[in-house]
Amino acid sequence: MSSGFFDRKMKALVVVIIVVLGALSVFGYVSSTGHASSSGPIKVTDSLGRSFVFQKPVTRIVSLDPSATATLYALGAIKDLVGGNVYDSYPPNESVPNVGNAYTVDYSELLNLSPQVVLGYGSTMPSYGTYINNTLKIPFMLDNPESFPQIENFTMMLGELTGKSSNATIIVNWMSSSLNAISSSMSNISTEQTIFYYLSNYGGYWTAGNNTFINQFFLIAHLRNVASNSGYFTISGEVIANESPDIILLDQYVPESAVQTAPFNETAAMTGSPQKVFTIFDDNFFNEPDFRTIYAIQWLISIIYPGIYLNIPNFPINLGYPPMPNA
């Protein structure tokens, strides 16, 4: 009888200990991640529609996408970045090793870093992405945000992936507020000026037309792009001369001397007083689809409509390297 009694007591004790340890374990897990993971595994989807499941927020990330790197920094997850790429510009002074660029990846370095996930950028799967995913068995997530809603989704996805969903929400709300502020400021602008974006002066007049990221900036700023075709292409000089754009926007690497001759020299942008030829202050703000594009639009509107006051709220997260230009 006594032995049976003690057996039952021992069994009960073991059950209690298991339950307590289990409860502590779950409690500790939730506390360490802070949020978002109490509902179980993290399921995220990339731009190709492929789903990835992680049991908990990842802490070892390699980013081959400068937008992802910038967003990770803003989310407060830069400590989880173990490898970057040669395009990374924000935050400055990145200390992690470069693993590659848009064309090549150093697989040895990549393996050495033991990432849980590799973030890439592009509309189609690069060959190295397939290799990383299928051969090295490291999840390779591709993203390609091409609109502000997609940037917001991308930010939320990274927030979820890193366990920083609350910060992601703050950033997304800030983007929405900023876009609303820009929209209300632009409501008084009824005239539509024409703009030509000079992307590169090598091998023709390269520009960006419809369905490009920068064209969305023009639409928000009530500008009509004289390059009406889709995507990036070499526009005919005749179209530039004939359309005579009011504004010429030069890429960071296009010199002003490139517009001193035909087909530019007789355009409204060049013959007006003052001339309306502007050089983009930093390509990264225009070409990298992340939360910092808000500042690109702000800059564009401020140079084209000097009288407009844009009341964009301050960035809501205190960062060591502020995200605004020239900060």
Binding site: G204, Y205, A227, S228, N229, F233, T234, I235, S236
Partner: peptide, 8 residues
Amino acid sequence: FISGEVIP
């Protein structure tokens, strides 16, 4: 080839 564009 394409109106408004110039193929290299």
